[in-house]
């Protein structure tokens, strides 16, 4: 028998004014963004582009080689060429300019503020003054050149990183790192990545369930209590899940030493890519040293 009050209309109390406690929603929004971000990266990595088709291990190796090579470049045009090469490869691989810049623009203000702006001043890089500033300071020609090289180096490095991140799925990247020695670490990293999403989904559902039942906003103390409680619940959930995962591993023959199947497919495309990268790298190194090295920049 249902209680009588269940068929009566309950008048909601007027909500009291509360101090804004949006940190919870913000945190959860950020969590959701992490998930979306990963999915977004996966989408571009799943497109049928040139770099996406390459074996992840070869791609990882070639990007690392290009990054190491970049440290030997000292001139703006060669660094620019490297950045343009990486950007062109991204565009050829059907990763749009919008995607590339949306994932890199936020670094640039920090780069300018921390690296470029100080290094153009005569106090850090003395030289021929271009613009006179108060207190005897000036912007020097050498300072501008060194700032341009620094910024271009960072931008080129970022393009190389995006070349890998936007065209390679995380699990492929991890698999690329599989060797006999790294297998346990890579397996743990793979599982961690996978279960972060499971727990983020649980946290998001907890928040949604609470929001669906919240009529009057909670005050800050209640919010904190709720968050503390949910953190505890999530911890217990993750512990239970870890025990179950371990059971599932045991049931499938795991005996303390993970064995994984390394699936690398190195074909003609990969060889051509490695050769192309090697030629390009050798070319810009020679250009940087032999041609630009003689010129004043």
């Amino acid at each position: 028998m249902l209680p009588e009050w269940i068929s009566e209309q309950t008048a909601a109390r007027a909500a009291p004014r509360r101090r804004h406690t949006g940190y919870l929603s913000r945190s959860l929004r950020d969590m959701a963004r992490v998930v979306e971000d990963a999915i977004f990266c996966e989408q571009s990595a799943r497109r049928a582009g040139f770099l996406q088709r390459l074996d992840a291990r070869v791609k990882l190796f070639s990007v690392l080689a290009l990054a190491v090579g970049a440290t030997f470049l000292h001139h703006l045009p060669s660094l620019l060429a490297l950045g343009v090469f990486a950007l062109a490869m991204l565009l050829v691989s059907r990763v749009g300019l919008g995607t590339v810049f949306s994932r890199s623009w936020w670094v640039m203000p920090a780069v300018f503020a921390l690296v470029a702006v100080p290094s153009v001043l005569s106090v850090f890089v003395p030289g021929d003054p271009l613009v006179a500033l108060p207190w005897g300071l000036s912007i020097t020609r050498q300072g501008v050149a060194s700032a341009a090289v620094l910024v271009t180096r960072i931008a080129a490095g970022m393009m190389l990183a995006l070349m890998l991140a936007l065209t390679t799925r995380w699990q492929e990247l991890l698999r690329a790192a599989y060797t006999g020695v790294t297998a346990p670490f890579v397996l743990v990293a793979t599982m961690m990545y996978r279960y972060v999403f499971v727990l983020l989904r649980v946290a998001e559902n907890m928040h949604l369930a609470r929001r669906a039942r919240t009529i009057v906003p909670l005050d800050a103390a209640q919010e904190r209590r709720w968050v503390g409680g949910r953190v505890g619940a999530l911890f217990l959930r993750s512990r239970r899940l870890s025990e179950q995962v371990y059971s599932a591993m045991l049931a499938r023959g795991y005996r303390g030493e993970p064995k994984v199947l390394v699936r690398h497919a190195v074909g003609a495309r990969e060889l051509a890519w490695v050769l192309g990268c090697a030629v390009f790298l050798a070319g810009i190194l020679v250009f940087d040293r032999a041609v630009l090295g003689e010129m004043a920049w």
Partner: peptide, 26 residues
Amino acid sequence: GVLLQDTDAMLFNSTVYDEIAFGPLQ
């Protein structure tokens, strides 16, 4: 062989292929 109820616990590999290969490899 044991099929657990919680598939989140059962599926801990990064791809379907690796998931199926895990047992035979061990």
